[in-house]
């Protein structure tokens, strides 16, 4: 039985490309804990051979695609770029944790690969060529991030950008704004007296006395109409707002 390390088998753990070299440097015995050394070494060696064979095959395939891409074969180039994406993402995300920025840098790497595809020599392995470009672009991006970070200050609230109200609305305001149409529709469903009460008292912000004079309704009638209107509007609007 292979020893478990954090839910992963030792062989699986050791055979990951970046950690495999580390494992071999320690003589494969680091995870043994009392197991016969020869048996463990055999498994690791087989795993290593499979890993290296797959890697070599993949490298040859990538070289072939790149060779064809240099000749102008768009399909081979698309296959190549799709195939190398996981490797590029892995190299970039090793240094940059933010997934949004990682994807931006991955795209910059792809553009750099495109711009410098003439520098690839088909007689050489493809992986070191790609890794060099990826690392270079990642370091450039890191420099840019650090430079920007030096001049940026994190704030809790965004400062006003323009005087107009529309530019300074919070997401909650946007929700209210979006519900404006629903409010209009709900107002249309109200009886005429209730609608008049809402328009005068809430939308035009009149006092009860002013509204009474403007509408010809008594103050008491306005109060009742307003109360009923709000009850109807709440019943109409609240379920939609909660969605």
């Amino acid at each position: 039985m292979v020893p478990d390390i954090g839910g992963k088998s030792a062989i699986g753990f050791v055979c990951r490309p970046s950690l495999f070299r580390w494992g071999t440097r320690l003589g494969y015995t680091v995870f043994l804990s009392g197991r016969p050394k020869a048996q463990f070494n055999k498994k690791v060696c087989i795993a290593k051979m499979i890993n290296e064979t797959e890697r070599a095959q993949q490298d040859r395939q990538w070289s072939e695609w790149m060779f064809q891409a240099q000749e102008g074969d768009g399909a081979a180039y698309q296959n190549l770029l799709m195939a190398v994406l996981p490797l590029v993402r892995a190299i970039v995300s090793k240094r940059i944790a933010d997934p949004d920025k990682t994807e931006d840098i991955v795209q910059e790497v792809l553009m750099s690969v495109h711009k410098n595809r003439h520098t690839y020599d088909p007689s050489l392995p493809f992986r070191p060529w790609l890794s060099t470009i990826t690392q270079r672009r990642t370091i450039d991006a890191l420099r840019k991030i650090y430079r920007q970070g030096e001049r940026e200050t994190l704030v809790d609230e965004y400062p006003e950008t323009f005087l107009a109200d529309e530019t300074n609305m919070s997401p909650e305001d946007d929700l209210v704004f979006a519900l404006g149409d629903d409010l209009n529709r709900a107002l249309d469903t109200l009886p005429a007296g209730q609608r008049t009460a809402v328009e005068l008292l809430k939308l035009r912000e009149m006092s009860l006395k002013e509204a009474s004079e403007a509408s010809g309704m008594s103050v008491a009638a306005l109060k009742v109409a307003m109360h009923r209107a709000l009850k109807s509007l709440r019943a109409e609007m609240v379920p939609k707002a909660e969605l």
């Binding site: 891409a69 240099q70 000749e71 102008g72 074969d73 768009g74 399909a75 180039y77 698309q78 770029l81 799709m82 994406l85 994807e103 991955v106 795209q107 792809l110 553009m111 495109h114 595809r117 003439h118 520098t119 690839y120 020599d121 088909p122």
Partner: peptide
């Protein structure tokens, strides 16, 4: 632009290049 779209646009009408 999404990464897949970028790859598609880079692969479209790919001209041959003179190797270094």
């Amino acid at each position: 632009i999404s990464t897949n779209d970028l790859i598609a646009s880079l692969s479209e009408d790919l001209p041959p290049v003179q190797r270094l």
